[in-house]
Design a binder for these strands. Structure first.
Lengths: 344, 344
DNA sequence: GTTAGCACTCTATAAAATGGAGTGCTAACA
DNA sequence: TGTTAGCACTCCATTTTATAGAGTGCTAAC
């Protein structure tokens, strides 16, 4: 069977109405709300067809229809208006924070949650590869040595190192020189035993300090602590009856608290090609691949700070989420983020 | 009326049973569950007295009794056994993280939540006063300057500074010298215009860099970003029917997400004197001073990293929380934390 | 092809019935 | 005087029953 113009219009109305109300939509409602000027009986016939085609279902015999995942898919693929929304003055707020990516991302999560009434999560930036760009050891007081490591992505790591006795200035200079000349530009896989040995030889009797420093470097390069995930608005789930049965709520909130779960899939896809659209993707129901979100939909976007450094923003709500608004909000947010990152 | 030995025993049973079941406790239950060998009728008389004295109430005429806040208060004040529980091998896990207080505290929050089945929150350490201990500017590449500031609490702050043209080594050394000699040991209130002027004069033509650095210092000293709050197990509220009505849930979860609210009171009290007990405090119902927690109880403890650097750990659950377990768990946790901080 | 009309189904809500848990009181007992 | 058995009573939680309304599918007429 073909999707006639008329069927599409009816389907669209079913979806839109259901998005608003969350209640099954009956034939009479549609008859009145469209400009088709058809009686409810005619609509009923058409709806019967649409049901047969798998776009709508009845929760029970004598109820109106609700859209299926297939209908939502059609909706987001072909029926969304591409209007740009107003994510104004947010930019100003964000620019202040541009220095601290983490603060900025938190803000973004919060903003999106309160603006859309859905739950949001934002993953911190990932870096494809991390190399050492600069190392510095500095004595701060008699018993502490400050170690600073700058990575090639300009992330700075530091840690205080306790030492038993003061380290003379001369030695510090020497160590700094050795470390920088030997390790600069290397990533963790390139720091093999041979190199480490070479360093220790040069350092002579002060291998102890070197050991500690090398450990720090190893940590800095491998650890995933910048894999932060910021969430906001998880309580928004409670606003949608279809998601706030006790078991449903528990599962969803847990998924949001146990950020690990989310992380899994947020990390899966590298950003694709189409940069214009910022890779905005919509996952409906099981498409999310997350069991606890089978009754949800999720819209994600990918932001890029610069080449190879990217993260994701996701909005999770009921299947009847306002796709139109969410997508356009995300779209205009991404434009603004691009701007900010370009400057920063 | 006096609280006879027998009344106490009955009250204790009412409380304990209610803690377990969450259901009102009837006279027959108590008659059977205690070793008093009294008939339900006698118990009824006693309970009638206890009700008159304000320790228990009936939710409605023909129901069993439930404890009032007054009863809980009595319970935690006088009836808790002081047994030390087993918070073993946690210490090992924590010690690995000792370097990074934030990671450790997150772990603590998580551990407590999963161990007690209540919601937990942990505030990051606060510092009474912050002074500059050490400043260092280092050119990292042609256009970036790395600024590192060590505070007297050994917290290290750093930030990259973009510059238009390379800064010569000589100037860097000079600036470092000026900054350190002038600012060391000062807190933010002491950095007045006179001092700033003096620095700028010495710096000569490079006031621009100085400006930027001073701003960083100002931020480092004043900003409250170490006022982090880590929460865990918020979904545990859903396990207790008396807290999981929709409105109740929403409020509580919001309070936990909007950490601001929590922060308010977590920050109020400075740690008191009795260090042996680690200032473990119990707030019942309205004693929490947080509107959304009026049906909850909360147990808090204060940890100290060293003099003047402390934070709080809180456990929030239903009024019928297992005070015994919570208090002893907290107690032994605190001992372990003390140990860890002593070494670190 | 469209529509009015009707019988039918199903649910959500309200109203009524039932059972049980628990109390307070009284009177008897040690 | 303190304890207890017994009974009438109350109230809630749960189940059962009734009711109204929304919506459908089908048929027959336009």
């Amino acid at each position: 069977m073909e999707l006639s113009e008329r069927k599409i219009k009816i389907l669209q109305t079913v979806i839109r109405t259901y998005l608003e109300t969350g209640e099954p939509v009956g034939s009479r409602t549609i008859s009145k709300d469209t400009d088709l000027n058809l009686s409810s009986a005619t609509i009923r016939n058409e709806m019967s067809d649409l049901e047969e085609m798998g776009y709508i279902v009845q929760p029970h015999t004598s109820a109106g229809r609700i859209p299926t995942d297939k209908a939502y898919r059609l909706y987001v693929d072909t029926m969304l208006d591409d209007k740009t929304s107003e994510v104004q003055n947010l930019k100003e707020q964000l620019e202040e924070k541009a220095g601290k990516i983490d603060v900025l991302l938190k803000q973004v999560a919060k903003y999106l949650a309160s603006n859309t009434n859905y739950a949001t999560m934002v993953s911190g930036p990932r870096y494809k590869s991390k190399k050492v760009k600069f190392i510095q050891i500095t004595p701060v007081d008699a018993e502490s040595l400050l170690t600073v490591i700058v990575l090639d992505n300009n992330v700075v790591k530091n840690q205080m190192l306790k030492v038993n006795e003061p380290v003379e200035q001369e030695l510090v200079v020497k160590l700094n020189f050795i470390l920088n000349t030997t390790l600069n530009g290397l990533d963790v896989t390139e720091m093999n035993l041979a190199i480490i040995r070479q360093i220790k030889e040069q350092a002579g009797s002060h291998a102890g300090v070197i050991d500690a420093v090398l450990e720090l470097i190893g940590n800095a390069l491998t650890e995933d602590d910048d894999l932060e995930i910021y969430t906001s608005g998880a309580t928004n789930f409670l606003k949608y009856p279809e998601l706030s049965s006790k078991s449903e709520t528990t599962e969803l909130l847990n998924a949001f608290e146990e950020k690990r779960i989310i992380n899994n899939w947020l990390g899966t896809t590298e950003p694709g090609g189409g940069s214009e659209t910022h890779d905005i993707q919509v996952y409906i129901g099981n498409e999310t691949k997350v069991e606890s979100m089978k009754d949800c939909s999720m819209v994600t976007a990918t932001y890029r700070i610069h080449e190879g450094v990217y993260g994701k923003i996701g909005i999770v709500g009921p299947k009847r989420m306002d796709y139109d608004k969410v997508v356009s909000t995300l779209q205009s947010l991404m434009v603004q983020l691009d701007d900010i990152f370009k400057d920063g």
